[in-house]
Design a protein around this nucleic acid. Sequence first.
DNA 1: TATGAATGAGCCTTCATTCAT
DNA 2: TATGAATGAAGGCTCATTCAT
Lengths: 219, 219, 219, 219
Amino acid sequence: MHFMRTRLQKDDFSEPKGIPNDPRKRAKYLAIVEAALAAFSEYGYHDCPVSKIARKANVADGTIYLYFANKEEVLISVFQEKINRLITDIEELTEDCTNSWEKIEVLVRYHMTTLGNDRVLANFLQIQLRQSSSNIRIGIAAPLKKFYGLIEGFVLKGQKEGVIDSAINANIARKLIFGCFDEVISCWVLSRRQYDVTERIDDVLYILGRALVVDLENR
Amino acid sequence: MHFMRTRLQKDDFSEPKGIPNDPRKRAKYLAIVEAALAAFSEYGYHDCPVSKIARKANVADGTIYLYFANKEEVLISVFQEKINRLITDIEELTEDCTNSWEKIEVLVRYHMTTLGNDRVLANFLQIQLRQSSSNIRIGIAAPLKKFYGLIEGFVLKGQKEGVIDSAINANIARKLIFGCFDEVISCWVLSRRQYDVTERIDDVLYILGRALVVDLENR
Amino acid sequence: MHFMRTRLQKDDFSEPKGIPNDPRKRAKYLAIVEAALAAFSEYGYHDCPVSKIARKANVADGTIYLYFANKEEVLISVFQEKINRLITDIEELTEDCTNSWEKIEVLVRYHMTTLGNDRVLANFLQIQLRQSSSNIRIGIAAPLKKFYGLIEGFVLKGQKEGVIDSAINANIARKLIFGCFDEVISCWVLSRRQYDVTERIDDVLYILGRALVVDLENR
Amino acid sequence: MHFMRTRLQKDDFSEPKGIPNDPRKRAKYLAIVEAALAAFSEYGYHDCPVSKIARKANVADGTIYLYFANKEEVLISVFQEKINRLITDIEELTEDCTNSWEKIEVLVRYHMTTLGNDRVLANFLQIQLRQSSSNIRIGIAAPLKKFYGLIEGFVLKGQKEGVIDSAINANIARKLIFGCFDEVISCWVLSRRQYDVTERIDDVLYILGRALVVDLENR
DNA sequence: TATGAATGAGCCTTCATTCAT
DNA sequence: TATGAATGAAGGCTCATTCAT
């Protein structure tokens, strides 16, 4: 039976298989995740047969289903792996910042540099991930919220610290920040022209600084 | 790069079907466009069979292909219809503005109000449209660029007028503006919680004003 | 714009699947070939859905596409299987002939007997195979040329041996021979009346002998 | 209802519309026949939509169905028009021949010259006509039989006259003659190489003469 | 009579998923 | 655990035919 084919028959009770603990399994799990990242980037989620992922991961098609419930879960897992890594890195990098605006600067700089130097990852996160059914959106929601929360936290903290204008709606600020670099990177990924997005980072930070930081001239 | 995945074996003899002039045909063309908008919003582009559009438009499946070359072209046409309408409306509404920042305010306000009051349209523009293959992205590029150009034009003009900080990269400003309301609306559409995005307009404009406008305190 | 007018510009990289070596696969490949032969004969190529072949072969529709690139390739493969068998058999049978006219006699006799005793095969080779698009004609060309070459080779050799009139254009002779038994068998297959074509073999050989053989009365 | 789509529902009682008497109608009938000849030759029967015929004939798609019951009948009518013309011409041309072998010579010469100078007609008669369902074969049978009868009549008469070997089975002789020039012309039509088939006529007649004519050396 | 827009049945093909080995 | 051959549902699209005008 092919019961995953239609949403209606979606087995709501299937627990997500999750990241295996056994290190050997974990290696194969990660191999599939990396292969999927590459394959989705190359072909696009909807035009990427599971068999392409399997081939890139050097496993049989069926093996995918020993590690993931279905194709959607593969996409979700790729996102989780990548976004969690981003979050961890940013948390680490921002530890030593003197104020929250600086943390935002570090975040934007790190995020844009990371994606700007990894077009495959950028393509996945900016483009392929959006090719999603509502199932996927649900699966993505939690880690994405965490990433959002990270940014919004910086804004709120910055407001408490007095570096960020308290009149700003922090949630909107988060959307401004995210929306801004998201748009910058998306345009870059989709552009035929080859240019270096990381060169845009200062421009982005300048405008975000204007938008957020109190007493701008004294920055 | 994944854009070139399919060679565009362009059928040299198929004239683009475009918008029919004959009013009776035009009516059916528009009926299909509206049906497709609704169907894509409801099911998502990839999970929406052409037959669903046909049913919503009260025509036979084959009739779709008298007006559109294929399913992709339907999506593109819906986008063109809608974005052109938005552009026209905004151009009209901004005619009387005294300065370019005001124009941006009108644009943001109008855009957010329009989508905020039409969840189906918002879902289509913010979510379904992004579910696109590279072909679709190409088809969408032109009118989208026009919309982008409208915003960027306001920014540039504002800089000449002295209302917008000339140190800002206008292109990045465009991405900030677009990225910001885009993110705000996307989150709203995807949110389970029912709230009124139009209530966020002032917050958005406040932060965009900070980001762009010169001499903010004296505004 | 009509980017995607046709689904697939035939994948130029798809290697012809060919006859599998793995004996288990080969068995299924042959099962499909036989099923296709029967199905094409029964319904005619253009009126024979792939699903009919699958059903006759006791496989799922999709399985056909694990062995053949498309429906056309199925037809081509059936032809290749059958014509190659004919060629091999004839080559073997004609080894011991004392002269080339005898070889032609054996060829005609064997061909007409084989088809005359296998109406399904005859129907396929004489009728269904001709229902072909130019793609199919191209796919068929090589083995057909081999069969033609076999006949023409006999004629040429016969002329050297002095059994066949050297004034004859060997290529025309090939067409005479082939055209003659081809026509005889085609008429038989299409005829409602049930008769035994093999009874016509001697008549065919008599007239071909007149046409080709030198010094007929002394044969 | 689309009841012609499947054979089962074929309306056996629909009388063939036949050639109209009204001269104005007859002109349009012939226009469609000529357009169909060209269209079938160009695209192949199965790859030729009725709309292509209509366009070539400068009529609306629906108009075809005022003159012909269905697409099959169009093909049949083209064949009838053409073969009847051939038969009439040959009957006329052979009137003055001194013996039946001469008549056969005239027939072969005329047939091969006509088709050899009209690749479109040749393509239709040799290739497209064979792309036929059994319905078409039935519709074609009568005029084809007449053509066959013409040839076979010449053979029988020639045998009575003593110019053609009486030991020959006249029916087989007919198949030899027809099969031979049929094969010659088919190969020519399908060949990429551009050559002049009419130059093969003498070769064909030489070999047919050997096959049929009594006392060849004294010819 | 002529038109051509509309119909909708039907088919080739893909590919997520399963399961025998 | 891993394999990969097999499955078969599903959908985009075509086109012969009809019928309202």
